[in-house]
Design a protein around this nucleic acid. Structure first.
Length: 473
RNA sequence: GGCCCCAUCGUCUAACGGUUAGGACAGCGGGUUUUCAAUCCGUUAACCGGAGUUCAACUCUCCGUGGGGCUGCCA
């Protein structure tokens, strides 16, 4: 599953890559065997691609829609890079920057409990740091499980200039001896990130703010290896309504669900871009390519942003209306056809579709919104008589009679929006009734609905015969 | 508990020492209109608190307070 917060981070990273002529790489960080989910990679790649955030390197979709790896620094699944991590961790060991740790999780748990009791910071107590080499080899040979931890220099202060947060300072003695290699031979994120980003020549890393506190560990690792660290840009968190980190519990965080609900990629991208970033102008609508031009890390906030869907819905409407008439019709035709087969060969489909475009929020609403073009509505007398329009039920038969006459006065060949308007307007004048008193019943009779596109428009897109037939109760 | 980060309308945000604190979404009111939608206009609503620096602080500094993140052989 691709987390919506992950999409936001990916968007910023993608934009930075495009802006600077760089490469956007998709690497799969599958180093936790316990959390492996079948199909996750495919879902991530497909969702990103659907949003337009296509990777330039790493895991991506081929022209025929298959998942493949491309790029000269592969493999791009961390689970396939185990020997690489092993080799690098051995170097750290040799250089005295790391050590074997045989502590069991039970002992570690106890240690943390004790530390908590004493109100101390929870950190590894370095029991295994200075084990003699012979003992280490003996215990390994005996098959004892171990992890490898980094040896943090505790006397120094680490400072870094984050591209978004600015100057950050960490005191060495507060940094834990992080596990780098787990007992199953897999690396932790920390080791894998440093090794891979160096080997894959990453010069810019965009990631969530939750990584800020492990930044000094990464900086230290780059130094241990003698490498130059990338430029880090930590992105502020997306928040629940109660301002805690965006979670499944309080929000729908699966990006694919937004696709399933019918949101346009344009709307999602636009919405996400505006969370934690601003253009410095009052412009609100941005396409992905416009974002490439105007996006800049200087305009990214440092505080978290509440994930509030109200604006997404507004953006959805805006982007729905931006679709060209032709595209809009093309995109809903199959949907409508599923419910009304006649829509497949409907010569008026494009015009009918145009009627609902500015009223629709999701494509999925289209079949229902166009139903009266494909099946005869069954309006009730109560619907035709609208108190707001000052029409009583007793008025209805008389009004329908006038409407029918007016429509019948139009010749078959003349059946058009313009002629319908002309015929009805004069009928309205002649009758002495108000516009609404005539047009509400007309529209209701034609559509069977409380609300719909206008009476004239609907009538014009119905045949003369059909329209006249519907003027009854 | 420890470390780190953050703090402007309900929400997303502008302001980079001098503004009647601006915009957007939502809300409310109205115009347009045959309904709904769309659209247009108007409107309610915010600088967390306290010191300090300065002629002048939303803006700079410090201290509070509040919120968040991390504190895993998760990422």
């Amino acid at each position: 599953m691709l987390h919506i917060g992950g999409v936001r981070t990916a968007l910023f990273a993608w934009l930075m890559a495009k802006k600077t002529g760089g490469t956007f790489t998709l690497r799969i960080e599958d180093t936790d065997q316990a959390r492996e989910v079948a199909g996750a990679t495919e879902n991530i790649v497909r969702t990103l691609t659907w949003l337009g955030l296509t990777p330039d390197e790493g895991v991506m979709l081929s022209a025929d829609g298959r998942i493949l790896e491309q790029g000269e620094y592969g493999p791009y699944h961390q689970s396939k890079r185990l020997p690489i991590y092993r080799k690098h961790v051995d170097q750290l060991l040799a250089d005295g920057h790391a050590y074997h740790c045989f502590c069991t999780s039970e002992r570690l748990d106890q240690m943390r409990k004790d530390q908590e009791k004493r109100r101390q910071a929870s950190m590894y107590d370095r029991t295994c740091m200075d084990l003699p080499e012979e003992e280490v080899s003996k215990r390994i040979a005996a098959g004892e499980k171990y992890v490898i931890r980094m040896k943090v220099p505790r006397e120094e202060t680490i400072t870094y200039e984050d591209a978004i947060y600015g100057t950050l300072t960490f005191k060495g003695h507060t940094i834990d001896d992080q596990v780098l290699l787990k007992s199953d031979g897999f690396p932790t994120y920390h080791l894998a990130h440093v090794v891979d980003d160096h080997l894959m020549k990453m010069d810019m890393v965009n990631r969530g703010e939750e990584w800020l506190s492990s930044l000094p560990k990464h900086l230290l690792l780059f130094r241990f290896f003698g490498w130059t660290p990338p430029r880090y840009a930590h992105v502020p968190l997306l928040l629940n309504k109660d301002r805690s980190k965006l979670s499944k519990r309080q929000n729908d965080v699966a990006a694919e669900h937004y696709k399933e609900k019918g949101y346009l990629p344009e709307a999602i991208i636009n919405f996400l871009a505006l969370l934690g970033w601003n253009p410095g102008t009052t412009q609100e609508l941005f396409s992905l390519s416009e974002l490439i031009d105007v996006f800049s890390l200087e305009h990214v906030h440092t505080s978290g942003a509440v994930f509030d869907l109200e604006k997404l819905d507004w953006l959805q409407g805006q982007w729905m209306r931006k679709i060209s008439k032709e595209d809009f019709a093309a995109r809903i035709q199959s949907l409508v056809t599923e419910k009304f087969s006649a829509a497949a060969t409907d010569p008026n489909f494009a015009e009918r579709a145009a009627l609902i475009q500015e009223r629709i929020t999701f494509f999925s609403e289209a079949p229902d919104m166009l139903s009266y073009f494909y099946e005869t509505p069954k309006p009730t007398l109560a619907l035709l008589a609208n108190p707001k329009q000052k029409i009583t039920e007793a008025d209805v038969p008389k009004i329908l009679e006038i409407l029918k006459k007016a429509l019948e006065s139009i010749a078959e060949n003349d059946w058009s929006h313009q002629k319908i308007v002309a015929a009805l307007e004069s009928a309205i004048v002649m009758s002495g009734l108000k516009k609404g008193q005539m047009l509400w019943p007309l529209r209701a009779a034609l559509t069977g609905r409380e609300y719909s596109p206008g009476a004239y428009e609907v009538a014009a897109l119905l045949s003369r015969r059909e329209a006249i037939d519907r003027i009854k109760i």
